[in-house]
Simulated scan of single mutants.
Amino acid sequence: MVVEGQDGGPQLLVGRGLSVSAVFEGSEEIASARAMARGFLTSLQAVHGLPVSKRAMGMIQLVVSELVTNARKYAPGPCLVSLDVRDGAVEVTVWDSSTTLPLILPPDPTRVGQHGLEIVMATCRSFEVHREPVGKRIRAAVVLADDPGGDVAGRQVM
């Protein structure tokens, strides 16, 4: 069961300091999940003084949107979204009730659709999937500040 907040949206379960979590149920709440991410990132800058680049602001919202969309599309019931600051990045974690692990397809510019995880993996510093006793947990980390050398997502080219 999803608890509604005072504004009729999802109830935040955790919202102290450098993390926030909420339960979402229904595809109409994908926009609410993006709004939660945007609000969290804005507060990281305004309240905590952490740098959040424009790229990170957009990428984290995109990652939240893609992961919640997949959870809503492929798993019954609610999904739990958590955002946590760790090591200069925001870890986006989405739990859903399906034990089926996502199929990550190789890049194919001729394929119509099913590019969400491909995009997430290309924009994140790390990506991992864990099967849980009930469902699965997907975690993707996006760096908050652009690398001074301009390297996207803080990755190093060898």
Rank of each mutant, 00 (worst) to 15 (best):
S19A: 14
V20D: 00
A22K: 02
A22R: 06
V23N: 08
G26T: 04
G26H: 11
E28G: 04
E28Q: 14
E28C: 04
E29V: 07
E29H: 12
I30A: 11
I30T: 12
A31E: 15
A31V: 14
S32R: 10
S32L: 11
S32A: 13
A33D: 02
A33L: 03
A35M: 12
A37D: 05
S43K: 00
S43A: 00
S43Q: 04
L44S: 01
L44D: 00
Q45F: 12
A46Q: 11
A46D: 07
V47P: 05
G49L: 09
L50R: 01
V52W: 05
K54V: 08
K54S: 15
R55T: 07
A56G: 01
G58N: 08
I60D: 07
I60T: 11
L62M: 08
V64T: 02
S65N: 13
S65A: 13
E66K: 06
E66M: 04
L67W: 03
N70R: 03
A71E: 13
Y74N: 05
Y74R: 03
Y74E: 09
P76I: 04
P78E: 15
P78N: 10
P78C: 07
L83K: 03
V85F: 02
R86P: 08
R86I: 15
R86D: 14
R86Q: 14
R86S: 13
R86E: 15
D87M: 09
D87S: 06
A89Q: 09
V90F: 03
V90H: 01
V92F: 05
T93S: 04
D96G: 03
S97Q: 11
S97H: 14
S98R: 07
S98M: 04
T99W: 14
L101Q: 08
L101S: 06
P102S: 05
L103D: 11
I104F: 12
I104M: 08
I104H: 10
L105H: 07
D108C: 06
D108N: 10
D108H: 08
D108L: 12
R111K: 09
Q114D: 15
Q114P: 07
G116M: 02
L117G: 00
E118N: 03
M121A: 10
T123N: 12
T123P: 06
T123R: 09
C124V: 15
C124E: 11
C124I: 12
R125H: 07
R125L: 09
S126K: 00
F127H: 03
F127S: 02
R131W: 07
E132D: 02
E132Q: 05
P133N: 09
G135W: 06
K136T: 01
K136Q: 06
K136W: 04
R137L: 15
R137Q: 15
R137G: 11
A140Y: 01
V143L: 03
V143Y: 00
L144G: 01
A145T: 00
D146V: 05
D146E: 14
D146M: 08
D147E: 11
G149D: 13
G149N: 05
D151S: 15
V152T: 12
A153C: 08
A153G: 09
A153N: 08
G154M: 05
